[in-house]
Design a protein around this nucleic acid. Structure first.
Lengths: 157, 157
DNA sequence: TACGATTCCATTGACGCCCATGATTACCCA
DNA sequence: TGGGTAATCATGGGCGTCAATGGAATCGTA
């Protein structure tokens, strides 16, 4: 129904390493129209970014700012294209994470899918809980900073 | 499948020097429609650039930016066209790298194929790992410069 | 004939696809 | 409103197919 990834779900990996993509995420992917799941390792977080064409587009946007054959383009493409993976989604809506992806996120026998609008993240459940706590703490700080701003001026300073 | 080279794969050379092109790359090449594999030595990297018509096109674009009588054109053409080879792909999807190519990339008994969208690179596995570390570091810098765009936070879609 | 190159088989292990199970949820109807 | 039934979804397992790899057979040619 929605075209955004929202909420979070925790599913288990079976003996073959398969894990079901949450049903609601699958319907968003279907609407996005991309066969397979585009996944890359988070740059600053022990998590994975996943999505369809919408996620792909952001990567192309970044690379388009540089000229092919430039040093910049080469390095960025290495980190983005070179470490991205397109996972196949089986008829039941499951994927298999590669060893490299699982290692980056510290994933064992379960994962948490976290909606982020145009993409979603894949976390090791415990790490996500910790991350969520930290996020809540920081959010309180931000709210204090905003404290009482009736109309969004918004400039961060 | 996809029409872009993404992800990375490490395969081994057999006693005859043959190495399998990753299956997903082969399907991209097939769609690109090119007999054989176009390969040239990296301009300033110990790696090889490989691909099909899409790679050829970018090379022509680069050269087209210079006058055919300029020193720059001469240099680039020497580096790109002059070191290019068209490798045959056997029925199993394997290629054999020439000694010149292997020497340039320092390739021994294994290679890593790295997707770069319209082309892919061929690396000696250890060298690629080091290069990837550098690329990730660089991407963090660029991400800061672009203000979080690299995390795919700001898709305008 | 001998060597290099190319094609043809064979093996092994991973992966994709199909079907089964259990459990929860949504739905229908008396 | 309560009960029952159908639908959906996460999960598990069996099995055929394909990819990566190794080695043998064949062809062309010096």
């Amino acid at each position: 129904m929605t075209d955004r990834f929202v909420s979070n779900f925790t599913n288990r990996l079976d003996a073959k390493g398969r894990v079901s993509i949450p049903s609601s995420f699958r319907s968003v992917l279907a609407k996005d129209g991309y066969e397979g799941l585009y996944v890359h390792q988070g740059l600053d977080l022990p998590a994975l970014d996943a999505g369809g064409n919408a996620l792909r587009a952001t990567i192309d946007d970044i690379l388009a700012r540089f000229s092919p054959f430039s040093d910049e383009w080469e390095l960025l493409s290495t980190a983005l294209n070179g470490t991205s993976e397109v996972l196949k989604i089986d008829p039941e809506g499951r994927i298999v994470l590669s060893e490299a992806l699982k290692a980056h996120a510290g994933i064992g026998d379960a994962v948490t899918f976290v909606g982020h609008g145009h993409k979603f993240q894949i976390w090791e459940p415990e790490r996500f809980r910790a991350h969520l706590d930290a996020a809540r703490t920081r959010l309180r700080d931000v709210k204090r900073t905003l404290g009482g701003l009736a109309s969004a001026g918004g400039s961060g300073s």
